[in-house]
Design a protein around this nucleic acid. Sequence first.
DNA 1: TATGAATGAGACTTCATTCAT
DNA 2: GATGAATGAAGTCTCATTCAT
Lengths: 210, 210, 210, 210
Amino acid sequence: MTDDRLKTSTMRRQPKQARSQERVNHILDVAEQLFIELGYEQTTTRAIATRAEVPVGSLYQFFPDKEAIVRALADRYFEQEYRMFVQLHAELIDVKIDTYVDRMIDAFQHFADEHLGYRAVLSQLIDLMTATDASQMNEYDQLMLLGLAEFLERRNPELGASRCELIATTVFKAANELLWLAFTRDIPHRQALIAETKTLITAYLKTYNV
Amino acid sequence: MTDDRLKTSTMRRQPKQARSQERVNHILDVAEQLFIELGYEQTTTRAIATRAEVPVGSLYQFFPDKEAIVRALADRYFEQEYRMFVQLHAELIDVKIDTYVDRMIDAFQHFADEHLGYRAVLSQLIDLMTATDASQMNEYDQLMLLGLAEFLERRNPELGASRCELIATTVFKAANELLWLAFTRDIPHRQALIAETKTLITAYLKTYNV
Amino acid sequence: MTDDRLKTSTMRRQPKQARSQERVNHILDVAEQLFIELGYEQTTTRAIATRAEVPVGSLYQFFPDKEAIVRALADRYFEQEYRMFVQLHAELIDVKIDTYVDRMIDAFQHFADEHLGYRAVLSQLIDLMTATDASQMNEYDQLMLLGLAEFLERRNPELGASRCELIATTVFKAANELLWLAFTRDIPHRQALIAETKTLITAYLKTYNV
Amino acid sequence: MTDDRLKTSTMRRQPKQARSQERVNHILDVAEQLFIELGYEQTTTRAIATRAEVPVGSLYQFFPDKEAIVRALADRYFEQEYRMFVQLHAELIDVKIDTYVDRMIDAFQHFADEHLGYRAVLSQLIDLMTATDASQMNEYDQLMLLGLAEFLERRNPELGASRCELIATTVFKAANELLWLAFTRDIPHRQALIAETKTLITAYLKTYNV
DNA sequence: TATGAATGAGACTTCATTCAT
DNA sequence: GATGAATGAAGTCTCATTCAT
């Protein structure tokens, strides 16, 4: 589980100076907000530039095109989420499965709570990928998945690596979807849905004695 | 659980003649294909019209605008899916839960197999709704959900109606997401993932003794 | 001063039956209303047909194209206005000029009062003519002008025919414009403006001892 | 009577550089010509752009939409006309009324002579206003009107301000209309009509001892 | 004769991206 | 490097008119 740094291959110029890095982050913040408000297609590069108070020309110095902005935004999310996971995972390495599930789900929910643009950006990212390649997970998701898989295998070595990956995938996707759904509900329903999610995942994992 | 009528409020003119109905369906088929290939925004009304070999004007005779096309497409999916569910649900009313889950999931997978545009269309629909109201489920999904909830309550009346609805929601969303994921995989992985989905759902429902 | 009948050269088919004539009039009524509400260009032939509760096809049976509708409408106005003028003119043939001006202006104002579409239609007519030929007066206006000119000449034969035509033209145009302006004002201002118009015209005509 | 600034609120971007200002003027010149030739509705933005040899995009950089072009054109006229009036009015402040009328009318006729698009543009402007608010005069016309009204009151203070405004309005409208009419006539008739206009206005004003 | 679905040219406008300054 | 005016292809949608039924 190597600790990767932010992939920046999508950026035109790696800002060397702190000042530029700030600018890039500011642009991303603005873009995130606009994507949430208007959606990707309805958000114009000019709108981003204007709201970020940078000239369009400058924006294009950091990002080769509009698509690069979503990608950079997604990268930023992935990295943060991944960091959160790695740290919590280390803390929970020895607790029993109910606790692991409980704490993890709470953590992811908390993350989503604070990153409202995540879904808007992600769904756009999926659209962009559809147009080109296919639905491959991003590197960080992959890493988290492997982290969970290893964890499961360590707990029940009989399962084998590939089976554990499958289980991890199942857990991730199911939990992820339900967490998103929870977000669209009011607080009481949200709590209930999150509790169910925990029940679902725990029941599943228990069938594998992990 | 009444058998509802095709919602056509999104259409400008309800085609009365078989000829026109055919045309509308053909337009929807073409639109579906293009949405899959290019995504909603990249698909132009002109492209739809051209590929469907109808003049744009005709297209606009049936659909007031581009958005109405996605909505009509979604309606078409929802209705078909719902019909499928109702019929199968009736057949499985008395089988044990493992079998119910097994057969249902197979059926939904089969449905998705044959309606590749479903997801592309749905995700766009979500974007459109975000712009206006919020993430409310469509009528048909709602009906299916209630169908499942009633089924659960009949099996274990102690759960109560609202709890059963929550469980049903959880099941639907989790299964749905995993099914979509399965779709992006090659056949062997897909089968494995579907099997896991069944395990997941069954384990969950068993905790409720249904 | 021959009494002309409605010019119908612009109509495709001269409705022979009373039923059709009614229909044509109804279409014109509706068109008038829509031209007032929306303007000529914004009024679609379909809108006219729909509101008139006739099929578009039928509309095109009476009018070769959209332009023909404005023309027919204008003709209708001209004829009515002309009739009004002829009758009043006969009544006033011997009164003194102040009275003539007073009564005539009141009459024209009354006419405009009851034909709100007049100006909308007329201004469109002018645009249409600009595109083709030029600003020639219509036949009925011409007839009214000659009527007034003859009247002036009879009162002061020294002026001569052509001079009287010039004076008549001046009177007509100036009065007409001010009457239209009066229309855009609220009632008190309107009354004042009409009084001024009478003063203006009377003062002018008195310089010619008519 | 302050000398007002060019109203440019209708323009998207106030061209700061001489180069851009030239471009805007050129676009307006071309638009004027096309409005004269074809009328407002028949003149397409593309046609304007093409004839002006600018890309459509550039046109839309200066004008938010087609309507803004007519408005800007009208503003240009109003301002020029107003300047002309102010200057001449100052020169004629002490002459007797016959001379004032004579010189003013000649000046307005001369202005119209050189601005053939004026009427086409104005009549469209009226249509546009009808759609929104109502027939309110533009600022410059208002200023000219007040200028004339003050002039009249100074000459005959007994009339009072509001009465003088009414007289000024009457004079303006009547003269304006006849001038436009004069334009549609050949030179000899035009001269005659203009002479009559002077007679009309002078006779009228003399009834007020100004 | 009556109908109204069908047609498709073309209108207005937007916006990602470039490049001269 | 920084700027933002310039570009023009392309998108959505309208509507007068026709013509098969």
